[in-house]
Design a protein around this nucleic acid. Structure first.
Lengths: 252, 252
DNA sequence: GACTGGCATTCACGTGTGTGAAATTCTGGT
DNA sequence: ACCAGAATTTCACACACGTGAATGCCAGTC
């Protein structure tokens, strides 16, 4: 059941019971399990369906010839891996799991069907696509301009807020099932430096990180340190009276 | 006239004369001129239409509170600035010119109209959107993993190949109307270091850069140095027999 | 033809972050 | 309860890259 997706989309749009049923139906057809550190789809493969993360963490990544690896984005429960990939012939990057993952494979026809019948879902999926793009842009800023400490802080803020959006936080803490190497691959820092930065953030009381549990006692303080501006996540909610004006349009 | 857009889209899809006329028509309604270093739309503004760059260079950028500035992407002639922005309430970044720019403001209704009537254009615009996203991902890799020299080299390769795609190269050279500061803002390097790297690339004969003209005597050599892999631009062409199967779908 | 302002270039110096490796702590499996 | 492998932490040292400022160059402009 795609509760997380539904919950995420409801941050933006008001979904009717029928909309939710349609999503549940689409996500129930084919469920697959992956172990940790396994590829879901590799560079060069031809994508055949959309993957919806039901449980666990995954990431998009790209590996250079000499082994350097960049994590391009994280997939959390409720995230869709490219609701439109089939337009392109082959993947230009890989998607792999971090933790064990349960995901739903959604066939393109189902997507088409659901979006044709449910304009509110179409609208919400557009929103999710555009926010995904905005996140990617923010990562560009993160890697290009922020210092190590800011980068890590920013990433932690983003992950926490995204998890909160799908109901996976408890108060001011959440699970963070990634290694410091992963954090380094995502922020362009060496694992050694990630460690240094984490120590520092801990020492200044901005985060508590023990095992796989992250606690952010004062989110606003961390946001300030990381120059984190919420804008780019576009978390405003259309009212219940929301009229998806023109939401059945093909390209917008 | 949006020759550049048409030329770009034709790298992917085969457009019929009627398709081209529709694009020309949509781009002819409202043309605006901007000087260099002017904002086309700022962070926080509500976008009202899609902008199509007809002539000149622009960029997406984001400025941090303390003044640091990251160029998030470059817009070249033929590029569309967000064919779908109106789903989001407000801009989370700015778009500004680099050189003087001539652009066409396309109203959302026109986009809807064109895509409804012309499935091949819809398909091609999807392709252009996805390639734009792929470019953004590659920038993430660039900033996160590559060294200064590789970053600059990679950026120059990308710009050259994109310009070639819209017919704005002459042999092995093209115009590069950006300052070294701009290059730094795009690659996350200081202007001083950009200068160092450019000297080095010049010294090793990989580029010739005089005034605003860039020449790449041996593109493959530069690609090798920059770990540039063409994949992500998805420059394969569907045959003329291309059947836009299902290209009228709302979300894919 | 001098003046101006924007760029490019160069310099000296500082530092944030990387490297490689070793030591330590955690974790899960049996 | 123990072990093996992973993950974290620490160390010493190197260097890519940043900083601030000065200099030089060129293209417009009056």
């Amino acid at each position: 059941m795609p509760q997380h997706l539904i919950r995420k989309l409801e941050q933006f749009a008001c979904l009717a019971p029928a909309d939710k049923r349609a999503l549940e139906d689409a996500a129930a057809r084919k469920v697959r399990l992956f172990g940790p550190h396994q590829d879901i789809i590799g560079e060069g493969d031809e994508p055949e369906h959309v993957n919806l993360i039901l449980e666990g963490w995954a990431c998009r990544y790209k590996q250079l010839e000499d082994g350097r690896r960049q994590i391009i984005s994280f997939f959390l429960p409720g995230d869709l891996c490219d609701p439109h990939v089939f337009v392109l012939r082959e993947m230009d990057h890989s998607i792999g799991t971090i933790t064990p993952v349960r995901l739903a494979e959604i066939h393109r026809d189902q997507i088409l069907h659901v979006t044709e019948e449910h304009p509110r879902i179409t609208q919400a999926l557009w929103w999710e696509m555009l926010v995904t793009a905005a996140i990617q842009r923010e990562w560009t800023v993160n890697l290009g301009q922020r210092t190590g400490r800011e980068r890590i802080g920013h990433l932690l803020c983003e992950l926490f807020i995204r998890l909160r959006g799908v109901g996976l936080t408890e108060g001011d803490s959440c699970l963070l099932p990634v290694t410091q190497v992963d954090l380094g691959d995502a922020t362009g820092l060496s694992n050694v430096h990630v460690n240094r930065v984490l120590q520092e953030l801990r020492a200044s009381g901005l985060i508590v990180l023990r095992g796989k549990r992250l606690t952010i006692p004062d989110l606003e303080a961390l946001q300030r340190v990381a120059l984190f501006n919420l804008n780019y996540l576009h978390l405003y909610r259309e009212g219940p009276d929301f009229d998806a004006n023109g939401s059945d349009q093909p390209l917008a």
